[in-house]
Design a binder for these strands. Structure first.
Lengths: 134, 134
DNA sequence: TGAATACATGAACAATTCTTCATATATTAT
DNA sequence: ATAATATATGAAGAATTGTTCATGTATTCA
């Protein structure tokens, strides 16, 4: 993963170099990071967050999900396909109705933790973002 | 948020309608869902996941982050700008070196929970995904 | 003062994403 | 058998995203 232009000055900065090595030793490998990112990506869209939160409440069919979320049946179906592929939801059929439910309690946990996070963080919109070069 | 084509059959399905109303009553509002999705979106890219995981280990400067992650300084800077905007990292300057650290312990928590999730879930790659219409 | 270094940022590009539209498939009702 | 209903999916389009390239700004060194 080494790339051009990377770390030309680590050689002459001993303190940073040891820190870099220490952090690298415990850093997530590429595959783990990719899989982790994939799970969080599933939660990175407002409509999917609401869909998963709805399923955390009750098992629902596509039709009802569309009603609850105010989305079209097609849009809901597309999202469900993505979530099935990630094993985050499971389904059972009853005639021509398909009922969906969460297939992974970790998602419920992540949603709850995420809610805790944003509730404990209400940055004042009036404070301009500081930046290093100001 | 009501849209055309939504819920044409709830009227004649009493059981589902009451379920829909129940779920809607406790569903995340649009703003909450958007802010929640925003936080998860910050974790939805493999390079950002690794960056935040690195900062969970130690405070690092841009140069060292680039070395640790195998990314260019410019790419790291772009990611840091996004993370600053979301109040997920903070910085301090020391001469011309800028040191970054996590500004939100919830992120560390979310990363840990996410890791738990993917470690407890190793779906067999040989099992084809089932789908409702098979 | 000029050069070197650390870092930030805009433009560009390719890739990805989410919704709509159209349509296909499965199941039930007539 | 046909129509109606529930759901899935591909194509298309618009918007978004992450990296590279180029360059600007701040700070330190000679």
């Amino acid at each position: 993963m080494g790339k051009n232009g990377v770390s030309p000055h680590c050689e002459d900065n001993q303190i940073h170099e040891s820190l870099v090595r220490q952090v690298q030793a415990s850093l997530l490998d590429g595959l783990t990071a990719t899989r982790l990112a994939e799970v969080f990506a599933a939660l990175s869209d407002p409509s999917r967050v609401r869909l998963l939160a709805a399923l955390a409440e009750a098992e629902l069919c596509v039709h009802d999900l569309a009603a609850v979320l105010g989305m079209s049946q097609s849009a809901v179906s597309h999202q469900l396909r993505l979530l099935r592929a990630l094993h985050l939801v499971r389904y059972r059929k009853e005639g021509r109705t398909v009922f969906y439910a969460l297939d992974d309690e970790h998602i419920r946990d992540l949603l709850e933790r995420g809610l805790e996070h944003i509730r404990h963080q209400t940055p004042s919109p009036s404070i301009a973002e500081e930046r290093p070069h100001a």
